[in-house]
Design a binder for these strands. Sequence first.
DNA 1: ATAAATACCATACATTTGTATGGTAAATGT
DNA 2: ACATTTACCATACAAATGTATGGTATTTAT
Lengths: 207, 207
Amino acid sequence: MQKELTAIQKSILDFLIDQIKGKGIPPTLADVAKHFGYKNRATVQQHFKAIEKKGYIKKSPKLSRGIELTFEDKFFVSRPVLGEVAAGNPLTIYPDAVDTVQLPTIAKMPKDSFLLRVKGDSLKDAYIFSGDIVIVNPNLDPKNGQIVVAIFDDAAVVKRFYKKRNEIELVSENPEYKPIVIDKKYSSFKVVGIVVGIYRSMNKKAG
Amino acid sequence: MQKELTAIQKSILDFLIDQIKGKGIPPTLADVAKHFGYKNRATVQQHFKAIEKKGYIKKSPKLSRGIELTFEDKFFVSRPVLGEVAAGNPLTIYPDAVDTVQLPTIAKMPKDSFLLRVKGDSLKDAYIFSGDIVIVNPNLDPKNGQIVVAIFDDAAVVKRFYKKRNEIELVSENPEYKPIVIDKKYSSFKVVGIVVGIYRSMNKKAG
DNA sequence: ATAAATACCATACATTTGTATGGTAAATGT
DNA sequence: ACATTTACCATACAAATGTATGGTATTTAT
């Protein structure tokens, strides 16, 4: 369907994505020209035309910054989903798997919150299912019973958090999965954040 | 910290949020003026100045559409919940907004959609539970198997929709509730909209 | 009672912005 | 080999845009 972009067109599209996702507003022709060192807006103008022709963006004529990403709608829109996280067995977070958009690692993200897509069904009884998007706030201290995202050994899980004397227990609601017990001294373990909400799109399942 | 906005300033800020979150790009002065019926961009200009002074937005001088929201984490938008709707037995929709929720912006609520809070557990098997917020789009035609909000006799339900010869069947996933069968000629029945997504806050339950 | 803030209007102006047109050179396709 | 696409340049222009300034009337503080 969609033709391949040339390397330069790709880099311009990447810049567009970066600006729209990161800065919040699309750049002007002049912005792009400046960024790539073009002495002329017309150059950018023609690149836009080419990229639009290949179906990657949509321009609103005469409208300043009137650039929309067309492929974006297939995914979850305004914010990038950082990766997938297991509710059952641990699963590696792979940043680029979920969204075509850049690769923000957790470290790079804004302090506020980020999104992860849940895989696995160990939280079935907490009403969180595979495919759901969980909204994670990394700036809250976990309390017993809360659902948290935790990383250990470069894998991530979503489970209920219980702090005990010398250890931390991560419990699934699903009895098929046994609790994970972590000694407090175990250094490669870290609570990434607390799940503050979930979102589920109904688009795909219906039918 | 932040001074109170006047009613008009608030409505302008709401419009800004709506545009930025919904359309993706901030409006121009002219856009705002047009929307509010102002004959002049300068009016908007002064409102922006006032809103910025109170700390709710940040403007980039000389930059078209150079408006940033300074307050919230960008993941949530405040949206009114129009009422409660039964997933089990019918329940009245309240005319006024009963509540507001912080909706995650990934939900990308179309302008024409609205929110309802679900009561009852007849959709348990569709993973929709009492207390969940459903996002309803009234401008889509229901297809068989989709979850819809329907009104009949001034009450509303959330159920799966099946169209048959001369009747429409509204089915719960929960076998405790029997399907509702409506004759097509029955006039006081209407499909309000299609459930396009659900959102659930985890704040209350955790502890 | 007086000052300040609010909520509009109008006009004017320099920039910014998108667009159109024409040109050159290299790479690519057929 | 010839046409097309790609990748830049330059100039020109109308419309969009942000900003500045000045004015009027109402509401809200002090």
